[in-house]
Design a protein around this nucleic acid. Structure first.
Length: 470
RNA sequence: UCCCCUAUAGCUCAAUUGGUAGAGCGGCCGGCUGUUAACCGGCAGGUUACUGGUUCGAGUCCAGUUGGGGGAGCCA
């Protein structure tokens, strides 16, 4: 007797016919037949579908237990795999034993009912929401994409680098940071000038949660050539939108001996690989998203993997937007060379002007970070954003400034303190090479792929301003 | 942080110009059926988020508080 996961059973039902198996999982629904049997939909999370267990009235605990099963009860069912007499499933389990492993103590108030709940409500029961169709599917899709990320890089000779979660350098510059401290907040040590004495803190200096692993991963790029990070990232910004989290996961590859064009090629190839893997490996869950969440999601992914990304200079993007404005397209923020593209501009460009993913390249240096490589025109940097229909910016990347004198000039120009960047500058002093990389928000990728409307519903336990329960 | 919307049964939602708080699902009881988020009948389930105000009378109008959502900015 074997105890296969339901996914294993349903992947090849024919080969299990006639064999005795045990399935373990949770009851989704129970339907009784007074003819003397009950139908149990048992789900173990291994795939989208539950399996139907037919519990005959002859079972010793039929009246005492089987007929009292409600949604959420944990059971262990042993029986024979048989072809189903009913419609809706090819096989089912004719049970010889249904053992109740865990009861639902109060079925009347069990939060997850076999019906449609609002996502807002399910966020309030985040510990139980993975038992629903939607959140089970999201969890499997998330896993599938995470594994595809590692597989993609591994197969191409990239090494996964575990950049630190806690950083004592304040030079990442990507956003507001969470402080990490063991000081007694009710009794802070002070310097003679009255300032908080961080020398007495755990690290002997101020420390924060990372906002990006990029600067750290560049050091390993200058030794291992092809590297990437994939881990949690933290932003203490008071962002209250369906696209922002205070804790999210980010993927940041870094490629040595590479320019911006190679970076854009990598971004395109990588995203297509992820979505191809998803379409192949989680067809069951994607079918559900297409049915219940976002009708267009499968077609969108198929179009995404099937069409070449448009590549467009920033200056060209501005010209195209200005043309649209001249034809009557109105923008809340006026378009002119030098502006950073607003959400409305990105949407117009991708959805109305081009109609497929666009890589916008070479932005004005004033609106981009200090580490991006200065172009020969002296006024743009080798930065790129990948914009996708329906979501906007999904990837931000750049070729990094590898020339020490130019980097120092940029650091000074932006009012930053060069000594703070001493180890980052060392990379330019010792065997510097052109290199490039990008950052991909993992949750935004899942949002894009599934059509889920809110980023808080594609991470198990979302952290947003004012919310860190669970 | 700013703007807008919103809060009614365990859940999803109704409730006319301010006039007796309802339904579906879920639960419980019964019926029926190899059923498919089954179906039929019955029962239980409410301080209408909170605080105050207007009114003969407030779920409904007003103010504040709290929670939730959407949009903007910031960004991934």
């Amino acid at each position: 007797m074997s105890a296969p996961r339901i996914a294993t059973l349903l992947a090849d039902p024919a080969s299990h016919l006639g064999s005795t198996v045990t399935v373990r999982g949770w009851i989704r629904t129970r339907r009784d037949s007074k003819a003397g049997l009950s139908f149990l939909a048992v789900h173990d999370g291994s795939c989208f579908d539950p399996i139907q267990v037919v519990a005959p009235g002859e079972l010793g605990n039929y009246e005492s237990e089987v007929q009292k099963l409600t949604a959420g009860c944990a059971v262990e069912c042993t029986g024979t795999v048989v072809a189903s007499q009913g419609k809706g499933q090819s096989v089912e389990i004719q049970a010889s034993c249904v053992r109740v492993v865990g009861w639902v103590e109060d079925p009347d108030t069990y939060p997850i009912q076999p019906k449609q709940h609002s996502f807002e409500y399910l966020r309030a029961v985040a510990h139980l929401r993975p038992r629903t169709n939607t959140f089970g599917a999201v969890a499997r899709v998330r896993h599938c994409l995470a594994m595809a990320v590692h597989r993609y890089f591994h197969e191409r000779g990239f090494f996964w680098v575990h950049t630190p979660i806690i950083t004592a350098s304040d030079c990442e510059g990507a956003g507001e940071m969470f402080r990490v401290s063991t000081l007694d907040m009710a009794n802070l040590p002070r310097t003679s000038e009255g300032a908080v004495d961080h020398a007495q803190d755990f690290f002997g200096r101020e420390a924060h949660l990372t906002v990006s692993g990029q600067l750290n991963v560049e050091t390993y790029c200058m030794a291992l050539s092809k590297v990437y990070t994939f881990g949690p990232t933290f932003r203490a910004e008071n962002s209250n939108t369906s696209r922002h989290l205070a804790e999210f996961w980010m993927i940041e590859p870094e490629l040595a001996f590479a320019d911006l064009a190679a970076d854009a090629d990598l971004a395109e190839d990588f995203l297509k690989y992820l979505f191809r893997a998803l379409l192949e490996e989680r067809a069951d869950d994607m079918r559900f998203f297409a049915e219940r969440i976002d009708k267009a999601c499968i077609a969108r992914l198929e179009a995404f993997v099937g069409s070449a990304f448009e590549r467009m200079e920033y200056g060209e993007a501005i010209r195209r937007l200005e043309q649209a404005a001249a034809k009557g397209r109105t923008f809340e923020f006026p378009v002119a060379w030098g502006i950073d593209l607003q959400s409305e501009h990105e949407r117009c460009l991708v959805e109305e002007i081009v109609g497929r993913p666009v890589v916008v390249m070479n932005y004005p240096k004033e609106i981009k970070a200090f580490y991006m490589r200065l172009n020969d025109d002296g006024r743009t940097v080798a930065a790129m954003d990948v914009l996708a229909p329906g979501i906007g910016e999904i990837i931000g990347g750049s070729q990094r400034e590898e020339r020490l004198d130019v980097l120092d000039a940029r650091i000074a120009e932006m009012g930053l303190n060069a000594p703070d960047y001493w180890w980052y500058r060392d990379l330019r002093r010792y065997g510097t090479v052109p290199h490039a990389g990008f950052g991909l928000g993992f949750e935004r990728t899942i949002v894009y792929a599934t059509g889920m409307a809110n980023i808080r519903d594609v991470i198990p336990f979302p952290r947003t301003p004012g919310h860190a329960e669970f």
